[in-house]
């Protein structure tokens, strides 16, 4: 059983929700990322999504764009990120790590080379933002061969027939985008999310997590009961981009707040 599946099964048994934390690999530098990964886990993050910096991150709002730019300024590549995951695995063999990014940087390495190296270094899944179902044959094929989960996005605009098609191809978990927009937008509407997620849960057995627009314990509690977990990105990337001396402190406070909100019944 893969780490992602096991993590969600264990949480389900405990009737707990998954907290998924997104930071950009190499933002503001590699050692900070490694430190943050361990710290996040310590404070209650169950799955880590590592953003792979791209020069043209089309789906990101200003905060995460800046995260990408900071990492690019450090010349962080996908290869360096694979090494980072390997270092992370020296101490943490349990927490799933998902790489999230844009098609072009993954393809530059090549699907075969990438998927082999990813598995070998301890990556558990990939989420490629601009690789919808129709565009993904070769890449997903290679990833599957290696046993990597290919996480799929579902948006408020996704039709029911499309949801069915996507769920058939997905593995790991389904990432429901809570709003029409880019990362960091804050117009999440819990009633609308509820309607969609209820429908979605009927169409898949995979865990469903909700992302976009969740930035603290308060916004997390509004949607946590609808799904199996929540994703927090922009709020963490803002911390990584803030005062270097205070990253640890702020990250710790933030994750504690989120974690507490998720555990509250």
């Amino acid at each position: 059983m893969g780490r992602i599946e096991k993590t969600f099964l264990d949480l389900a048994e405990l009737k707990q929700k998954a907290l998924i934390g997104y930071i950009v690999s190499g933002d503001p530098n590699m050692s900070s990322t490694l430190m943050a990964m361990h710290l996040m886990v310590e404070e209650g993050v169950h799955v880590i999504e590592l953003g792979i910096a791209f020069s043209d991150p089309m789906a990101e709002g200003p905060s995460i764009q800046q995260g990408h730019e900071r990492a690019l300024a450090e010349k962080i590549s996908l290869k360096a990120t694979l090494k980072l995951v390997k270092s992370f695995r020296e101490k943490d063999k349990k927490t799933p790590v998902v790489l999230m990014g844009y098609m072009n940087t993954f393809e530059a390495l090549g699907s075969e080379v990438f998927s082999y190296a990813a598995k070998d270094n301890g990556v558990d899944g990939i989420l490629i933002v601009d690789m919808p179902l129709e565009a993904s044959d070769e890449f997903t094929e290679e990833c599957r061969k290696q046993g990597l989960d290919v996480i799929r996005l579902i948006a408020p605009t996704t039709t029911e027939s499309r949801i069915k098609k996507i769920c058939k191809q997905a593995s790991g978990y389904i990432y429901y985008i809570s709003l029409k927009g880019i990362t960091g937008a804050d117009s999440i509407n819990p009633e609308e999310v509820e309607k969609k997620v209820l429908k979605l849960k009927k169409l898949t057995d995979l865990p469903v997590v909700i992302g976009f627009g969740i930035k603290d314990g308060k916004s997390a509690s509004k949607v946590k009961d609808l799904a199996d977990g929540v994703v927090v990105g922009t709020a963490l990337v803002d911390i990584m981009g803030g005062n270097k001396e205070e990253i640890e402190k702020h990250l710790s406070i933030k994750i504690k707040d989120l974690s507490k909100a998720l555990r509250k019944t």
Binding site: A135, P156, T157, T158, I166
Partner: peptide
């Protein structure tokens, strides 16, 4: 039918835009 010219073209966008 997939919007391609040989291997080029296609629809490489975030899921939100696919239905649009």
């Amino acid at each position: 039918s997939k919007g391609r010219f040989g291997i080029y073209g296609g629809v490489y966008v975030a899921e939100t835009l696919v239905p649009a």
